[in-house]
Simulated scan of single mutants.
Amino acid sequence: MAQVLVVDDSSTMREIVCSFLSQNGFDVAVANDGRDGLAQLNKDPGIRLIVSDVNMPNMDGLTMAEKIRTELGNKDVRIVMLTTEDNTAIRARGREIGVTGWIVKPFRGEAVLGPFRKFCGLA
């Protein structure tokens, strides 16, 4: 069972984030868009944290987060957006639908280790 689900349409970004998290003791699963992310979450009840891009084909990260909170009724999983989007309106929408955190790319792993470990019950 994975603790963290990384959702990004960029294979390079998925690899960077997954590699860093794996090297730091996290069990990681991947998805290539929001639709795939929902499917992965449904298959793995051990996921405690989702790190997702916002802009992706098929289903964007905010729509995925909204579906997790409303359609799946999952209020426990933490959702962190890792994106180039730094628009205040988009961030506000994220907060409204239950996004836990917002990280503007580039990904600086060391800065998130503490919070991510806490989210996953590893701290």
Rank of each mutant, 00 (worst) to 15 (best):
D86G: 02
R69D: 04
N32L: 07
V4T: 08
K43N: 13
M59N: 04
D60T: 04
F20E: 13
S10Q: 04
L5M: 14
V104K: 13
G34D: 13
F26Q: 10
C120S: 02
D33Y: 00
I79K: 07
G73M: 14
L82I: 05
M13H: 12
C120F: 08
M56V: 05
G101Y: 06
T63P: 02
L38T: 02
R93K: 14
E110W: 06
G25Y: 15
S22Q: 15
L113S: 02
G109N: 12
A111H: 11
I90F: 14
T88M: 06
A31T: 10
Q23Y: 01
N32D: 14
D27T: 09
R78F: 13
N55C: 05
S52A: 05
A39R: 08
D8M: 14
G37K: 00
P57E: 02
T84P: 03
L72Y: 01
S52T: 11
M64T: 12
L82P: 05
V112P: 05
G114A: 12
G37H: 04
T12F: 14
M64I: 14
D9V: 01
T63K: 11
E66D: 03
R78V: 01
T12E: 09
D27K: 14
T83S: 15
V80A: 08
F20I: 14
D9H: 04
V54E: 00
N74M: 03
N42V: 09
I103N: 06
G98V: 09
E15A: 01
M1N: 09
K105I: 09
G61Q: 07
N42W: 00
I16D: 05
R108H: 15
N42H: 01
M64A: 12
L41F: 03
R48Y: 04
I97F: 00
P115V: 07
Q3A: 03
P57R: 03
V51K: 02
G73S: 12
V99P: 08
A123D: 15
P45C: 07
S11I: 07
F116N: 06
I50Q: 01
E66L: 01
E85V: 15
D60R: 06
P115W: 03
D33S: 06
G73F: 11
T70I: 10
D27M: 06
K67P: 00
T12M: 13
N58Q: 02
N32T: 02
D53S: 01
R48T: 06
G94L: 14
S22Y: 01
I79H: 04
V80D: 01
R108C: 11
G101W: 08
K105M: 03
G25I: 11
E66F: 00
W102Y: 10
D8H: 14
I79C: 11
V104F: 11
I103R: 08
V99G: 04
E71P: 05
G61A: 12
K105W: 10
T70M: 14
V4Y: 08
T12H: 15
D76K: 06
V54N: 10
D27N: 04
E85M: 12
A89K: 06
S19A: 11
G25W: 15
P115S: 13
A39P: 00
I50S: 05
F107E: 05
Q40M: 15
G25F: 15
D60A: 05
L38D: 01
G34L: 15
R78I: 01
L38R: 01
